[in-house]
Design a protein around this nucleic acid. Structure first.
Length: 767
DNA sequence: CAGTGAGCGAGCTTCCGCTTGACTT
């Protein structure tokens, strides 16, 4: 008997759906898009109505062949890709590739993988919505035009191999601008005053409702407090509530997993993918906070039976993002009764987070009792305020959120008089905006409507691999703060060391990002504007409604965009590399420039047109192209410098290179991480050189004929012939390996494939 | 993991969004 063929996007989904549909249906998967614009060139005929040329990519050919075969033997075909722009396009591409008539082939959609949803879908087929397909084509073509016309401009004007795009260039811009904001930030200081009172043997803290701008004013306040009377002037008790957050979307899951578990967005997505494939959670790339009716009902029964009806509060959270497509449910457990799952530690932690969050979203608000006590000072108008908070009913906090650390104030009565044990006035500084983490950048992009759940993690990777952004731990800086204290009616002043600015895994822009962003914001402002995507989305909506033609939208965009591309050709290299003349070197009478070079920021002395070639030097540490001075630069031109001689009488020189400061003896380079090449002494240099020599002597455990070596590598000993590397197994002693054994090991070595080739191609490109 | 930076010109690079594995180090 011929079966009905249903095609979905995800193979994991296919398995589940097949179970629900029974054996008269065969469910197959397209593994996402099956056709796309070829990578090697633009593949858009801009002179012929932007006609795109699509191609089935090599890795999808097999899948398409399989689908074709099943199509031929099937009774009919049902296209069940996701209900969004991309899903509609996938359905249309499937028609094109499988030879189906888009006007006749059945198209079905479901937002959730539950039996009722699937039955409902099967009963209500429609045909492909070509307007929605065209909106996707417009999106695709727009992105290709921007990416493939803008990137080559950067190759010419900034550096080969760079990339620019509607999403990534804005992501980089956000990071560049945040860093500049932080650098320009001037911290303001003021004085925060706290008092420790004692009542019925309990000590509690109170904070003054005013801050002082100077230490003098703080001192005056403390002085006024000597001999003053402190009385409770107001006790305000009121109830409060706290409510749970919405179930997870991709973006909120990435943020919470980073905050609570310390995962990178990539780690989170890999773990979630495993959980999805093993059937523990629903789809992990979603922008919706909605739960299926089935999930709502299951949560209800689980919560009522486990915690009692009082804890249940059924709720559906509206998705806030305006561009959300809501093709899927929120990320939730597929079965609430699974509190734990079989899987590694990472999967378990992430699962638990999802389980807790989903359940909490269906639980009651927490109820709190809040108390605010005001304490009057007889000699001053300000008030000391103490706040207490007690959890009366924990509600959702039973499973999610901080376990409400109660702040309990002692029993106080109106007009009660209090004695301060101590009053402190502490200098505090205002803080600049925080640097972006991976997750907070995703949140910002989502807020701007830029990027999709499936691209957040790859975008974060791209901007790092292109060298625009680095993930860094930032060390704390120290500053002195003043502390004024009033104890036993005596005022004392002291200083404390305040460690500030320490931060983990934050995104920091490189000089390349600064140069590129400045270039793009100056010459391609419309593309890197924060609302470019939002405007484009409005047009895409019009196309999807059928009230605008996609070719009109693209053609309108392209005519203005392409003009910018043409105009950018006239931008001088001097401008695009941000060349700045620092002054003239008094000894050579040549001009000194700071600019962005082939390998990063650099200094140049003399012009290219000079008879003798210009000389180059690195930027001194802790300076940038914007703030480096002529004096700084002249110091750098003292390099390379003769440091002295080794014990064997060889010359030692010092310099700064691509990988930082180094000393050089013959052909041996030694990094000097903390020392300054301008001041390093002969003695220091010799010590480092000897250590390096020892390391080199230890590197080769054995050297055989024909270039075969046993090498002490960073991951343990390995055998190499220069082409292939084989790890020496742990049970073997590297020192005892014979030439014969080494040869045998090399024969077993795997041939390095694609990633290796790619690396080589990159290396070639650099040259 | 190697110590540059001009300019010449070969041939290369590049986008965003859907999906999974197969790569290593």
């Amino acid at each position: 008997m011929k079966k009905h063929l249903v095609i979905v996007e995800s193979p994991a989904k296919a398995k589940t759906i097949e179970k629900y549909l029974g054996n008269t249906y065969e469910v197959m998967s397209s593994f996402g898009h099956i056709r796309d614009l070829p990578k090697k060139n633009l593949s858009i005929d801009v002179k012929n109505n932007f006609e795109p040329t699509y191609q089935i990519s090599a890795e999808k050919q097999k899948i398409v062949n399989g689908l074709k075969k099943s199509t031929k033997s099937a009774q009919d075909v049902w296209l069940a890709s996701d209900e969004d722009r991309e899903g509609e396009a996938i359905a249309w591409h499937l028609c094109e590739a499988l030879g189906l008539d888009p006007k006749k082939t059945k198209r079905i959609v479901f937002h959730e993988i539950t039996k009722p949803a699937i039955s409902h879908a099967i009963e209500n087929p429609r045909t492909i919505d070509i307007n929605l397909v065209n909106a996707q084509q417009a999106r695709r073509i727009l992105d290709r035009l921007v990416g493939y016309e803008l990137s080559p401009v950067l190759w010419k004007k900034v550096r080969p191999g760079l990339s620019a795009g509607r999403v990534q260039s804005v992501a980089v811009r956000l990071i560049v601008e945040r860093e500049r904001e932080i650098n320009d930030f001037k911290a303001k200081d003021n004085y925060k005053v706290t008092a420790n009172f004692v009542a019925s043997n309990d000590e509690f803290v109170s904070e003054l409702n005013a801050k002082f701008d100077t230490d003098e004013n703080t001192r005056r306040f403390l002085k006024d407090c000597i001999g003053a009377k402190f009385t409770v002037s107001k006790i305000d008790k009121k109830p409060g509530t706290r409510s749970s957050g919405a179930p997870f979307t991709t973006s909120s899951l990435q943020q919470e997993a980073a905050r609570r578990l310390g995962y990178s967005v990539k780690q989170t997505m890999t773990l979630a993918q495993r959980l999805y494939e093993s059937g523990h959670i629903t789809y992990m790339r979603t922008d919706s906070t909605l739960l299926s009716n089935q999930a709502l009902a299951e949560a209800k029964s689980y919560i009522t039976s486990k915690y009692g009806a009082k804890y249940h509060n059924q709720r559906q959270f509206k998705t806030k993002q305006s561009n959300a497509q809501e093709a899927h449910e929120a990320i939730r457990p597929t079965n609430f009764s699974n509190q734990n799952i079989a899987g590694d530690e990472g999967q378990n932690k992430l699962y638990k987070l999802i389980w807790n969050r989903t359940l909490a979203s269906q639980m009651s608000n927490a109820e709190l009792a809040r108390t605010e006590v005001s304490i009057k000072i007889s000699s001053r108008p300000e008030l000391f305020i103490s706040k207490g908070e007690i959890v009366i009913f924990d509600g959702f906090m039973k499973v999610y959120g901080r376990k409400g650390e109660d702040v309990i104030l002692p029993e106080l009565t109106l007009n009660q008089s209090l004695k301060p044990k101590q009053i402190l006035g502490r200098q505090t500084f205002s803080k600049p905006s925080a640097r972006y983490s991976e997750a907070s950048l995703v949140r910002q992009l989502e807020e701007l409507g830029i990027g999709r759940p499936s691209t957040y993690a790859p975008t974060i990777s791209t901007i790092q691999t292109r060298g625009y952004v680095e993930k860094k731990d930032l060390e704390a800086k120290e500053r002195e703060i003043k502390v004024l204290s009033l104890i036993n009616e005596k005022i004392e002043e002291s200083t404390e060391i305040d460690n500030y600015g320490a931060d983990r895994a934050k995104l920091v822009p490189t000089p390349l990002a600064n140069v590129t962003t400045d270039f793009l914001t100056k010459h391609f402002a419309p593309i890197v504007n924060y609302d470019f995507t939002a405007h484009a989305e409005k047009d895409l909506d019009l196309i999807a409604e059928g009230s605008e033609k996609w070719v009109d939208m693209i053609s309108k965009f392209y005519s203005s965009f392409h003009k910018l591309v043409e105009k950018s050709e006239t931008v001088s290299r001097k401008e695009s590399t941000q060349t700045r003349e620092l002054g003239v070197d008094p000894s050579t009478k040549k001009p000194v420039f700071a600019r962005y070079g082939r390998y990063g920021p650099m200094l140049q002395r003399g012009e290219v047109t000079d008879e003798d070639k210009p000389t180059f030097a690195s930027l001194p540490e802790n300076t940038t192209l914007d703030n480096v001075t002529l004096e700084d630069a002249l110091e750098m031109f003292k390099l390379p410098r003769d440091v002295g001689k080794t014990d064997e009488g060889e010359l030692i020189t010092s310099n700064i290179g691509r990988f930082g400061p180094y000393i050089k003896v013959g052909k041996t380079f030694v990094s000097i991480k903390t020392l300054d090449p301008l001041t390093i002494t002969e003695k220091e240099a010799n010590k480092l050189y000897k250590e390096k020599k020892k390391e080199i002597d230890n590197k080769y455990i054995k050297v055989f004929k024909g270039g075969i070596k046993v090498v002490n590598g960073p991951y343990g000993p390995y055998v190499t012939n220069g082409k292939r590397n084989v790890k020496v197994s742990d049970d073997k002693k590297a020192e005892s390996i014979t030439e014969k054994e080494a040869k045998e090991l090399l024969l077993q070595a795997p041939i390095r494939k694609a990633p290796h080739r790619r690396k080589k191609a990159k290396a070639r490109a650099k040259k």
